[in-house]
Design a protein around this nucleic acid. Structure first.
Length: 673
RNA sequence: AGCGGGGUAGGGCAGCCAGGAGUGCCCGUCGGGCUCAUAACCCGAAGGUCGGAGGUUCGAAUCCUCCCCCCGCUACCA
């Protein structure tokens, strides 16, 4: 177990996972980014006999909750409670064992937030500033950035405030030309409002010393945090909303704290709630140097957990501990795209629960795809590979050794004889691999830890192949080999427990092992004559067809009638012969409402005519001389008695049609690909 | 634009901070073995100009400089 900088072993471990926003529909990315690693790490600590708790909960305040509740026609509190319960159900399905899964809207958190704020206020870390913001008189609220749309003053594109979607310029809501409220479409008015700010620059030196001293942090976390320090600015911590923690200062009665301020304080409040219910003192967990605090987060949360929340804690001057480490994951994408609720991209936890796979399948697959050093992709192929690899290397081994035990020893643990060199090699591995796995877990290298654990299973398989106990004439050798293999399987199963708790538990019970500790993984201590369970297919493999089925089911999945065409292979695309063509002549087709006849020069493909339904949008004379793009190898079709030899390409959106054209002049006949 | 991460055999990764023959892992491919086991397992082989160009060094995937490509973030998407 890694000790702190002072070499001291912690007495308590406080593990947190970023609080999921209550209105988000949780998906695999949320799980893999912080909730699952936090769970694996906490399970590992507990196996080691450490005093560890795992704290999480829903982040509930903010505009989105208010609006979602309004749309659903229920009170905000009711809405959040419902969503909170759904989150909890999802995570528990995945065998996530939170010590407590709380809510930031709890009374405890309101009190804690106000208390911490007052501490900061009294210590002089809060400043006040008046700003101008957009206010919607119809919805009776100040509008956050994403609730204002208008024209970008720089490029003219329609965008929301915050940052222009087109040119990337940062935009204050008041910068937008012709701003509109997203909710009702009315024009908001500019209104003055007073806000409180957390004076981050005051913490600059302390932060810098602290962060640069944390050499054990992952480089991406430490570097990013350090890069933020030179231009720290005071950060607003209040907003003009109703749903949130009230600001306990005169003149701020109609304001609440910004969610980012009260959300991380939720870690403390939720700990406190748990402590009070369990006869613990919450301050032992938050104000004692013997406690080691670890925040599991996604990379987007780095500024909050390395700068803002630590500053908040320091500013209270109450002796709050700062995180020992902030292991941040990168992002998981879905088949190359971002997970998106609105676009229906990705696999959501709700979907998963309806699929025929147990939680451990997902856990193991997600560990293999864990974005530890860079963004990764969830693909169904990888999902299947993870499970099939585990089935081959570990599941099959469990079955294998149980079958051998049944066949030769009536499903009991055989009594071993003397160990030879080969036996001792395996013995040595059993004794050393658990420490190697532990080292990886101590530095949050989950994929590597899993790999190391499975390597022991592979070694056991190799050992069996070399010793061939099914051939042994010597009963004692056979007993020894099977005995040792059973112990190796026990060892691997213990190491896998944090990753796949249910499957590992099943295997261990069949080996007659109950409640093992991490240290037990190093021991060769199965008692001869112990009754073993029956052989079993612990992990069922996935077929290629199954994988394809899911790929299809989820690829075309899109909400509200927006259909994405199914994926194609490049060679399918390559069948299209797309060319640049020059319009030589264009004329209306007599008797047709829509058609224009075009005579084209397609370079090496010669001249041809195409009929296109463009009358509504283009005049023939406008087209002459233009370069356009055509699909040249479409089978010809007769229209109005004439043959159309190809199809021209145009973009269409809401009753508007625009021809495609090369961005610069190029020879007719040029291939497009 | 700035910042952060990544670019290592057909695919997925580790190795880089503390430089020492491309060292390694999983999958795939090819050849062989075994038949206790979930068409499983084991052994072996093929396959890499370590994104590119300079530099430091006896020696560079690893350190320095410049460049290219991918991804993300820029402050409430984990």
């Amino acid at each position: 177990m890694r000790n702190g900088k002072d070499g001291r072993k912690p007495k308590r471990w406080l593990i947190t996972s970023a609080l999921p926003y209550v209105n988000n529909r949780p998906h695999l990315g949320h799980l893999v980014g912080c909730i699952l690693p936090g769970d694996i790490f906490t399970r590992y600590l507990k196996l080691k006999g450490e005093n560890a708790i795992y704290i999480c909960g829903t982040d509930e305040h903010g505009t989105q909750s208010e609006i979602a509740a309004r749309n659903a026609g229920v009170s905000v509190d009711e809405w959040c409670k419902k969503m909170h319960d759904e989150h909890e159900k999802d995570y528990s399905w995945f065998e996530i064992e939170f010590t407590r899964f709380g809510r930031t809207s709890s009374k405890t958190n309101h009190e804690m937030t106000q208390h911490i704020f007052l501490g900061l206020y009294e210590n002089g870390y809060i400043t006040e500033k008046e700003t101008e913001q957009l206010y919607c008189e119809h919805d009776k609220m100040f509008l956050p950035d994403r609730y204002v749309v208008g024209k970008c003053p720089y490029c003219g594109a329609e965008t929301h405030a915050g940052q222009c979607e087109n040119c990337g310029k940062l935009l204050e809501p008041t910068d937008l030309i012709d701003p509109k409220c997203v909710l009702c479409g009315n024009t908001p008015v500019v209104k003055k409002t007073k806000h409180l700010y957390l004076d981050l620059p005051k913490f600059k030196d302390k932060l810098e010393t602290w962060i640069s001293g944390n050499k054990h942090w992952k480089p991406n976390v430490r570097n990013w945090a350090l890069s933020l320090i030179p231009d720290l600015k005071p950060r607003p911590i209040t907003r003009d909303l109703k749903w949130g923690v009230k600001v306990p200062l005169p003149g701020f009665e109609d304001k609440v704290f910004y969610v980012w301020f009260d959300a991380p304080i939720g870690y403390i409040s939720i700990t406190k709630e748990w402590a009070e219910e369990n006869g613990e003192n919450w301050e032992d967990w938050w104000k004692s140097e013997d406690t080691r605090l670890i925040h599991f987060i996604g990379k987007d949360n780095i500024p909050f957990h390395t700068i803002i929340f630590p500053s908040t804690l320091m500013g209270t001057e109450e002796g709050f501990i700062l995180p020992y480490d902030v292991p941040a994951m990168e992002f998981l994408n879905y088949e190359g795209k971002k997970f998106s609720k609105s676009k229906g991209v990705g696999v959501f936890l709700k979907d998963v629960r309806e699929m025929p796979y147990p939680p451990d399948y997902w856990r193991i697959a997600l560990v293999n795809m864990m974005p530890e050093t860079g963004d990764t992709d969830f693909t169904w192929a990888e999902f299947a590979k993870s499970i099939n690899d585990l089935a081959d290397a570990y599941g099959n081994l469990v079955n294998r050794v149980l079958v051998l035990s049944r066949k030769y020893f009536d499903s009991t643990v055989p009594k071993p004889g003397e160990f030879n060199d080969r036996d001792n090699e395996l013995l040595k591995l059993i004794e050393t691999v658990p420490d190697q796995v532990a080292r990886e877990l101590d530095s949050f290298k989950f994929r590597e830890a899993l790999k190391k654990a499975l390597s022991l299973a592979r070694d056991a398989n190799a050992y069996l192949n070399a010793e061939e106990p099914w051939k042994k004439e010597n009963e004692v050798r056979r007993a020894t080999v099977i005995y040792l293999t059973l112990n190796a399987v026990k060892s691997v199963s213990i190491l896998l427990k944090p990753f796949i708790p249910k499957i590992a538990e099943d295997a261990l019970l069949r080996l007659g092992v109950e409640n093992p500790s991490w240290e037990d993984a190093k021991k060769v201590d199965l008692k001869p004559s112990t009754k073993l369970g029956s052989p079993v297919i612990l992990i069922k493999k996935l077929s290629d067809n199954e994988v394809k089925k899911w790929e299809q089911k989820f690829s075309g999945r899109n909400v509200e009638g927006v259909k994405m065409v199914g994926q194609i292979k490049y060679d399918e695309f390559a069948k299209l012969d797309i060319r640049v063509a020059k319009v030589l002549k264009a004329e209306e087709v007599e008797g047709s409402r829509k058609l224009i006849r075009l005579e084209l020069d397609v370079g090496e493909l010669g001249k041809r005519q195409i009929l296109a339904g463009l009358k509504r949008w283009y005049k023939p004379e406008d087209l002459e001389g233009k370069l356009i793009i055509i699909l040249a190898n479409l089978e010809p079709k007769k229209m109005m008695g004439m043959e159309s030899q190809g199809m021209l390409l145009a973009a269409e959106k809401e009753d508007d049609v625009v021809l495609l054209a090369p961005e610069k002049p190029i020879e007719p006949g040029a291939k497009v690909h």
